[in-house]
Design a protein around this nucleic acid. Structure first.
Lengths: 150, 150
DNA sequence: AGCGATTTAATCGTGCACGATTTAATGTGA
DNA sequence: TCACATTAAATCGTGCACGATTAAATCGCT
């Protein structure tokens, strides 16, 4: 056993607040998305595509801050589920375009109630959510910048 | 392509702010912990143990909001690395007590500079970090409560 | 034209997180 | 006492995230 003195407690780490709250949020989504047969990451990808499809893997990655090592297998699962199509660009064979299928488009209706359920679970009002989200985005940008420099 | 109208953008989701910022934070830790041969989750477990060891798997889980399905394999890796010992309690054979080894204790010194490096990367001052962390803890509690009820 | 640099996606291996289940030890009530 | 519930940890299968690397197409420059 240590004498605690001035040791930092894990609960005081901002990283831990982020980590544990992000995990908790994920757990909120799991039952909400179960009926749609989507994981949380898949739901984020679908949300991006519902805003506008015919996107490159790289473009989805830029929106979600993910790369092909994460996205390629995830997109293959969405394709296997019949929600998207992956098609090589004909002008540039390096590029893979992601299109929604009709089923993928229809899923948007079923998913419409999800954000409200999540908002209820947070116990926060919209303006508090926006404020917190804004702080998180700023923090993420700082972390990305620091990583780019260092 | 959709006409966007009033569609929610993924960037407006609080869950996405949490998710992407938590991922970004993890990426800050990876190079900092590389020299210690620790992953981020392992570092959290070690931090808990540095505050006081001889903990049950369940007790570590309560601190980190994780369960044995995540912790057991992680603890086995820490044991294989020589940083901890796992010992069955003699009074109650269901329980497994986690002890730091001498190497595990010594690692704390090498890890001492990590929090400051992370703080620099956030670009935030201590009081802003504490304020944000406090909001996140409150949110996590709300999410946990909602999950317990629902 | 041709060759090295760049870009895009895919692949590989590791280690979480999670829900669900199992195993084994202990507790509890008729 | 002895069945049944509860508890603690482990196990199992799935799907991310990540760094690192590879493969193939295209670009750019001479």
């Amino acid at each position: 056993m240590n004498s605690h003195k001035y040791e930092l407690q894990v609960e005081d780490f901002l990283c831990f607040g982020l980590y544990s709250t992000s995990n908790a949020m994920n757990k909120i989504y799991i039952p909400l998305l179960k009926g749609l047969n989507l994981t949380y990451a898949q739901y984020l990808v679908m949300t991006v595509l519902w805003q506008g499809d015919a996107l490159l893997v790289k473009e989805i990655g830029q929106r979600l801050h993910l790369e092909s090592n994460t996205l390629t297998p995830l997109l293959k699962r969405l394709e296997a589920a019949g929600l998207i199509e992956r098609r090589r660009s004909e002008e540039d064979e390096r590029k893979v375009l992601i299109w929604l299928t009709e089923a993928g488009r229809e899923l948007q209706e079923q998913a419409r109630c999800v954000p409200e359920e999540v908002m209820k679970a947070t116990g926060l009002e919209e303006r508090d959510i926006m404020e917190l989200n804004s702080k998180l985005q700023t923090l993420r940008q700082a972390l990305d910048r620091s990583r780019q420099e260092g």
